[in-house]
Design a protein around this nucleic acid. Sequence first.
DNA 1: GGCAAAATAATGTGATCACAAATCCCGAGG
DNA 2: CCTCGGGATTTGTGATCACATTATTTTGCC
Lengths: 252, 252
Amino acid sequence: MPRIATPPDAADTSLRQQVYASLREALTSGRFAPGQKVTFRYVAGVLGVSLTPVREAMRRLVAEGAFEMNPNRSVRVPLMTRDKVLELRDIRMELEGLAAAKAALAATRPQIAEIRRAAREILAARTRGDSATDRQKVREFHFAVYAAAAQPTLLRLIEGLWLQTGPYMNLLYPDFISSPRGPAGRQRLIDALQAGDAAAARREMENDIRRALSYVAGLADENGNIAPAIPATVRKRRSPSASDAIFELRVN
Amino acid sequence: MPRIATPPDAADTSLRQQVYASLREALTSGRFAPGQKVTFRYVAGVLGVSLTPVREAMRRLVAEGAFEMNPNRSVRVPLMTRDKVLELRDIRMELEGLAAAKAALAATRPQIAEIRRAAREILAARTRGDSATDRQKVREFHFAVYAAAAQPTLLRLIEGLWLQTGPYMNLLYPDFISSPRGPAGRQRLIDALQAGDAAAARREMENDIRRALSYVAGLADENGNIAPAIPATVRKRRSPSASDAIFELRVN
DNA sequence: GGCAAAATAATGTGATCACAAATCCCGAGG
DNA sequence: CCTCGGGATTTGTGATCACATTATTTTGCC
């Protein structure tokens, strides 16, 4: 019987992994402008490393769809469109619905407690109006459910999808999350997990994703483009420190 | 600057892309033994290139799950287990079922003709007992359907999943494919696509995948391991600077 | 002044090197 | 025979260099 709930490669101290983590963090927090060209040497300069680990990290992100490569072999941040959001919505409904169904059959009691805790912390952050913590806890809630499914390949796929939709989930604040249906749906999801009702868990997860991403799709302009919510603080640094990489937000 | 014999893939002529294609082909045709350690220098030597493109190609395959990386940073061909087959089965049912449903709504007349042609060629190869062509045409049939769905992200995900299950689909021959349910199911799928019946198309696709991968899961030994069907042919390595992608099948 | 061509800079790609960690090998000791 | 230790070898990692291609700027001509 193989161990399933294996933690991610946390022991990987390679520069490549650190660059990957830095870029991933910068992408999900929206510190790159959509369509922005990101060169290897720029990233290497900001992070103070050579091209080698940067190339490998960025190629992985290209493979995951977080970056895209032009035919003229330059790497860019993908533009988000209504069609792409709708495609990602349908894929995520399938996969995260499947994960919720599996979780209903496999979740242990401490795992359910962890999920419940995350749900409480979402509400706490939300009543405080702390949208940053809110978003973080929403992520923890979802991935606590997916971890309970104990399906490593499925988890990896879902992480890749979140990487693509990540910068745009800020758009749900503050309007969308004021709807009371979110908390109620999470409660019904927890109930379904506890009852082992796979169909109900899947339904609740699918509804949650459908509502959120349909809302984001509705924010597209007349050309179908969607701009991410840009954090107000855009800083510029030249520090060669890989641990706290801050990427300048350049406009083309 | 050595040339590598690769199928005409895309406009990307980089060595990295050629190495990627070679390794991918070797993996799907089962020329690597499960659990086999694959070193960068070995691949570089066989293909006659330096480490740089090999590293990038292999890292991409690791990201896609076609290779796996040990904590001691060596790259291996993943072992297939019953649990993993069942997980991949459920994921593929979701995603390829979704693609079939989308295809039912979006397929054009020439695309349906292409799908129908592939189905005919499967039957032709099967009556000849040509299992190699059979497998190739099954792949063409499926991906003709997925292409008709016109969902680029979904297509990329499905390709990644086929890369992981690929070496084990040989196990369906010759016993499993003798079942007459395959051709009948494909015909019903085509009918559903033509009628624009998304639910029926999804159902047929899901049934096809469920049957095939459940059969493969049933081939696991008492430890849950599944060995791929090894092609009887290739086992010989040519010169150290071979100009095409023939990988020796090493046993550890 | 406008614009195309040449010159220059920027950038991705692939090879090579140095180095540390992991692995392998082989013999001593039981 | 087997186990264990230590040196030799293998292997992944990161940096650096050379080069071709693409992008940008400057120049020269009308």
